[in-house]
Design a protein around this nucleic acid. Structure first.
Length: 292
DNA sequence: CGGGACTCCTGCCAGC
DNA sequence: TGCTGGCAGGAGTCCC
C-alpha cells in the first residue's frame, strides 16, 4: 500500500529523528526480509550518524556520515514507529510515542530496531516481509541494481508529457500497467494509478501507444495533482496521529475510484457506477463513462 | 525483448 | 463459532 505519498510522509515523519542522530545500537531480528540483509549489516550501522534522509521512488535512503546509504523499502506492510523514553524532551519535528523504557514489548513482526544515541528508538515492522533493507555507497546509488533502471520522479519537472510520449509510443500494454511500471515513472502504485487515470479521463484499458498527445498532457497533470494532494493529506495525518503513537506507514485518504466498486461515480454530471476489473493480476477501479 | 503470470508473506474477511 | 479460501499488493523473476 505505501506508494510515493505514503513513503514521502514516512520520510518527513522520520527525518528529524534520524538526521544528526547517531545510531548507537541495531537489533536485526532475522536474517532476511524480502532479501537477506547484507553482511555485517549491524556493525556497519552502529556508530554512524545520519546526514540526510532521502526518498527515491518508494525507497527511503538514509545517507550516513561514512558515505554509506542505508536503503529501505516498506514493501506492502512495512511501518516505522518512533519511541521516546517517558519524559524525554523531543527535539522539534520529532514525532514519537512516549513510553516507559521498561514497557517496550518487541512484536513478532518487529524486524529491525534502531536505538539512537539520544534515546530515541525506531522500530521497523513488516508482517508480510515484502520490505527490504540494504547498504550501498551513497555516491553510487544509481549504480545499485534496485535503482539502475528506475524512471523519473513524478513530482519533478523531468516528468513531462513529451517524456511520457516517448516511453509510451509503441507500447501495446494497457496504460494502467504502464503506470505501474517503475521504469517509466517511479513511485506510482495500484491506488494512484487508478486515481490518476480517473482524473485524466483515460480508460485503464486504453493501449499505451494511443495516450501520447492531449491525453498524456492530462495524465501528467493528474499524476502530479493526485500525488501532491495525497502528500498534503499525509502531512496533516502526520500531525494528527504521529504525535499520538509515532507510527508511520499508512494514512487514510478519500479515493475517487479505488476500492469503490459499485458506488456512484463522483463526477457531478455522471450517473455511472465504479467498476472493477483485473489487469495483470491486480484490481483496477474506474468509471467507464468518464474514462475513455 | 515485451508483456503477462507467478511468487514471496501474513492478516483479514466473506462465506459456509 | 470456527475453518477455509480468496484477496490484498511491490517488484523481481520466469516463461512464452
Amino acid at each position: 500500500m505505501p506508494e510515493l505519498p505514503e513513503v514521502e510522509t514516512v520520510r518527513r515523519g522520520l527525518e528529524a529523528a534520524f538526521v544528526g542522530n547517531v545510531i548507537a545500537k541495531v537489533d536485526q531480528r532475522r536474517p532476511d526480509l524480502r532479501f537477506p540483509f547484507p553482511d555485517h549489516f549491524v556493525s556497519r550501522l552502529e556508530g554512524r550518524k545520519t546526514v540526510a534522509l532521502h526518498r527515491r521512488a518508494k525507497y527511503l535512503v538514509a545517507e550516513l556520515d561514512d558515505g554509506t546509504a542505508l536503503i529501505m523499502h516498506l514493501g506492502m506492510s512495512g511501518r516505522f514507529t518512533v519511541y521516546a523514553p517517558q519524559g524525554h524532551v523531543l527535539r522539534p519535528g520529532v514525532f514519537a510515542h512516549q513510553v516507559a523504557t521498561s514497557g517496550l514489548d518487541i512484536g513478532a513482526h518487529d524486524h529491525v530496531i534502531f536505538d539512537f544515541e539520544d534515546g530515541l528508538r525506531v522500530v521497523f515492522s513488516d508482517h508480510r516481509r515484502f520490505g527490504l533493507m540494504t547498504l550501498h555507497p551513497f555516491k553510487d546509488l544509481n549504480g545499485h541494481k534496485l535503482f539502475a533502471s528506475i524512471g523519473v520522479e513524478p513530482l519533478s519537472e523531468v516528468l513531462t508529457s513529451s517524456y511520457l510520449d516517448q516511453k509510451l509510443s509503441g507500447k501495446r500494454t494497457p496504460i494502467k500497467s504502464a503506470l505501474l511500471d517503475q521504469k517509466i515513472v517511479a513511485g506510482i502504485g495500484n491506488i494512484y494509478a487508478c486515481e490518476a487515470l480517473f482524473y485524466a479521463g483515460i480508460s485503464p484499458r486504453r493501449s499505451s501507444h494511443t495516450v501520447p498527445g492531449k491525453r498524456s498532457m492530462r495524465l501528467v497533470q493528474s499524476i502530479q495533482s493526485v500525488l501532491s494532494r495525497a502528500i498534503e493529506a499525509g502531512g496533516s495525518s502526520l500531525r494528527d496521529y504521529a504525535q499520538a503513537d509515532g507510527e508511520l506507514g499508512y494514512f487514510q485518504t478519500q479515493f475517487a475510484v479505488y476500492d469503490r466498486e459499485g458506488e456512484a461515480c463522483q463526477t457531478a454530471s455522471c450517473d455511472g457506477t465504479i467498476q472493477r476489473l483485473v489487469q495483470s493480476n491486480r484490481s483496477t477501479f474506474f468509471c467507464s463513462n468518464c474514462q475513455r
